[in-house]
Amino acid sequence: MSDHHDHLSLYGRQLSSRILLGTAQYPSPTILSEAVQRSGCEIITVSLRRELPKGTDGQSSGGSFWDLIQKMGAHILPNTAGCHTAKEAILTAKMARDLFKTNWIKLEVIGHHDSLQPDIFALVEAARNLVADGFEVFPYMTDDLVLAERLLAAGCKVLMPWCAPIGSAQGPVNVHGLRAIRGNFPDVPMIVDAGLGRPSHATQVMELGFDAVLLNTAVAKAGDPALMAEAFGKATEAGRSAYLAGMLEPRDMAVPSTPVIGQAVFGEL
């Protein structure tokens, strides 16, 4: 179990869990619910799409999902996924706020089709506009230090660097870059968002001192998503505990762990 005093604070909201889960690509709504529960996560990400009129069964797709997330009881973090300009992202954020009744927004402005790398210039522009409008922005970003500075100057209080392209499952491909961004902004809550593939990846970035992880595909596309969600939850906790405990730095030479004082000397037998 986590230290009871080790809370994560995001825009003034205190959380005991350090894993955030996306809600897409699960085999079924039931499995999604189970994954959320078993991971221990308290924040789920959601999106917005064009609604269709009610079907002949009297249900709409948006309505069904709305009912499901209400029952989960997690905090909602809406995203602006699919937006390619600051203008699109700003309007989507405003629509999300009207619908979900939250000032939180996971700000995504995609700049590159294949890698889904963010358009960092539009990201900063959108962040500045949204913060001025009262939003609490969670920017999906690369691990660029200057970008981090610009986003903080724009008013972001949380940063969400990727560790690899979305859905790639590569894990931390630039540990040096992650270590640098963590080290340069030690007091800013940072969530590693995107690119995690295995629970050990979550442990690794938590050991680097990141405050939380956000993932979706690695859980949703696992053979048993609920079990994988639980594994990621434990791995995230393990990494956090290790970071707090203080880890031994690697050494070039062997050092005996058993004390040599008092060791018997038998001479030549």
Binding site: T45, L48, G62, F65, A81
Partner: peptide
Amino acid sequence: IEILSPMQGG
């Protein structure tokens, strides 16, 4: 007119 509703997202 755009009419949007909640959907799954990452």
